[in-house]
């Protein structure tokens, strides 16, 4: 049994996860945890130099929470760190990127994208791996939200999915920035696509495949929209909020309600994390692996290289939008 802390998470989500996660005890305090998952960290004030310490909860360390700034800190004590799961929101502040990318599984940190673990995308990935679709030829993605709800995290998560399904980074990128507002607030952000306005990213791969990624933050306040189509040489997948909505009649115009995958996605991601922690514990203690074996694709897990590619794509898109030209992928 692995004790898992989800600091700052919605209590309803925690309750929903309790009955779904195997071999897992959800605990309130990171100090009681064998593993910690930061599934919605919002620490805008965090300093890069403290990153490692901040993201490493210690069993016996000093913990404090700064409610005003939302900053969570801990004294780093090498050797006592617990495994940590960090989701894409950690990359929301571009000034942390280089520091984050230096961290790795060896540090006990896993950077996972919950979007990859959504049952719909798991199914698509399974079919892709089983060669049901043949070679991917065109991936089309729309992400529309209101300005208030649009975050860098959303875009990073989607771009990660694009590269995950298409098998790696493209050879070239053209980004059209309708808002023509590529400049951002801090010097560190100057080469990063802002999450404002409407952006169209067109990726090309050398084998002829392409991706059209449409990000828009211009919806009226309210729910957003997502759709993704993957066209392969022998099959296709269509994932669309349009077809996953239920009709609700409450007088006047009919309303719709979206069937949500959030909890299954979180469950899949956290179970894989817990299982990997349990496996590590058992290996270190010489016991056999008896993980839950929840059905998650082995290729789902991110590594720092995939995040490096995602961040590079975002940067090149910004460069393309600013210059109005096609940018080739740079291998550095």
């Amino acid at each position: 049994m692995i004790s898992l802390a989800l600091p700052g998470s919605d209590p309803e989500l925690c309750r929903a996860l309790e009955c779904r996660l195997h071999n897992t005890l959800i605990v309130e305090s990171p100090s009681d945890a064998d593993a910690v998952a930061l599934i919605a960290p919002q620490f805008p004030e965090v300093q890069v130099q403290n990153l490692r310490g901040m993201y490493h909860y210690q069993r016996d360390g000093q913990h404090q929470r700064d409610g005003q700034k939302g900053t969570l800190t801990a004294e780093s004590q090498p050797g006592l760190a617990v495994p940590l799961l960090v989701t894409p929101s950690a990359f929301a502040d571009t000034s942390h990127w280089s520091q984050l990318l230096r961290l790795s599984a060896d540090d006990g940190i896993q950077f996972l994208n919950p979007r990859r673990y959504a049952p719909s995308l798991q199914l698509i990935r399974r079919q892709l791996d089983a060669q049901c679709f043949g070679e991917p030829g065109l991936l089309r993605l729309h992400r529309w939200q209101s300005e208030r709800l649009t975050t860098t995290t959303e875009w990073l998560s989607d771009l990660d999915v694009v590269l995950w399904l298409m098998g790696g980074p493209p050879d070239s990128i053209l980004c059209i920035d309708q808002s023509n507002r590529t400049a951002t607030n801090s010097p560190a952000d100057q080469n990063v696509l802002t999450v404002r306005g409407t952006k169209q990213i067109h990726c090309r791969w050398s084998n002829g495949a392409s991706a059209l990624v449409d990000f828009c933050d211009q919806l009226p306040e309210g729910e957003g929209y997502f759709s993704m189509t993957l066209i392969g040489s022998s099959g296709a997948a269509y994932l669309d909020d349009h077809s996953n909505r239920q009709l609700v009649f409450t007088g006047g115009n009919v309303q719709t309600s979206l069937d949500d995958e959030h909890i299954p996605a979180m469950t899949n991601m956290l179970q894989q994390f817990v299982d990997s922690v349990a496996t590590t514990c058992r290996e270190s203690s010489g016991h056999a692996d008896t993980g839950s074996r929840r059905s998650v694709e082995p290729t789902t897990q991110n590594d720092t290289e995939t995040w490096h590619d995602v961040l590079t794509l975002l940067q090149l898109a910004a460069e393309s939008a600013a210059s109005g030209t096609v940018i080739s992928w740079r291998t550095e």
Binding site: L138, L219, I231, G235
Partner: peptide, 28 residues
């Protein structure tokens, strides 16, 4: 996005969709 994507790729002749974004709303 235009393609003759093969009969196996859709049960009813092919997906044809419009996504329209306006200054006051959007439509699928």
């Amino acid at each position: 996005a235009v393609g003759r994507i093969g009969a196996s790729s859709h049960p009813s002749g092919g997906e044809i969709k419009l996504h329209i974004v306006g200054s006051r709303g959007a439509m699928v």
